[in-house]
Design a binder for these strands. Structure first.
Lengths: 136, 136
DNA sequence: TTCGTTGTTTATAATTATTCTAAAGAAGAT
DNA sequence: ATCTTCTTTAGAATAATTATAAACAACGAA
């Protein structure tokens, strides 16, 4: 459980003003035991349900993008009409249950090391992501 | 080089009527040495340039979806506003040059074996895809 | 070949996720 | 308090994709 005060500091440290909208979004996103996978729409609805004061959709977009830029959220590469984000920003991978459209974390040790034995001149590797699609 | 006749047969065998639009699309897609990565829009423009008779955007969508369903095209999981497809439907992986928005094939042997040491009851693995993002 | 059926193409409208805009509001520094 | 700067917001704009329904083309049977 992270306190509101800690979110305020986290925001300040990132030169993001701690507005009540951002603090609300922090609480919905980061006050959790487990990793959280979501789309903007998921998040928007959760906020509507869970918090008294309302937050506009535009602000949810703005905030998620700001958090992503600051490295507090990770974008998950997946083919879907919506963009998925993850509160777990450590290096890790995913199962995607195609039928239920649900993501499940794979710990790094569940996948073992991935060796990329090819390189492109002038480019360096930014990230390596494994997506394991599941079917019934 | 695959002949028009072969495309016609391929289409017939897939219970897709060999229309002139579909044959044109086949020629643009499959008459190539190397694997081809594309978005619908890329393909639409290529067809406009390369073929005399014009094909509507809706038909390009329809046809790409039909080919994907039949397993002649593979959808590449990637975060982009547009959907990427690949004419290489074998099991393989990709580099994605984030700056240039370009995909590069990684042969399976360039990546080494990927061992998934976790399973979800009642589900089986459909595919394992690695996306390696590149930066400068 | 002709006819009827069924599948396909097409222009256009509709839908959906996302981004943009500009005005009002709130936070921070002085 | 006041000024500046950042943020929020509703709503408009954009862009990819999907749906619609009418015209058209392929196929099979007579």
């Amino acid at each position: 459980m992270t306190s509101k005060q800690e979110f305020i500091e986290k925001l300040r440290n990132s030169s993001l003003r701690p507005t009540k909208q951002r603090i609300n979004i922090c609480e919905v996103l980061f006050n959790r035991d487990k990793t959280f996978h979501f789309t903007i729409n998921d998040l928007f609805n959760l906020i509507k349900d869970r918090t008294a004061d309302k937050v506009s959709l535009a602000t949810v977009y703005n905030t998620v993008h700001a958090f992503h830029k600051k490295g507090y959220l990770k974008e998950i590469p997946i083919n879907s009409n919506q963009t998925y984000f993850d509160t777990n920003v450590t290096d890790h991978h995913h199962f995607f249950d195609v039928k239920e459209e649900k993501l499940i974390d794979l710990k790094n040790e569940d996948v073992g090391p991935i060796e990329i034995q090819k390189s492109i001149p002038g480019k360096k590797i930014k990230s390596v992501e494994v997506l394991v699609k599941l079917e019934d």
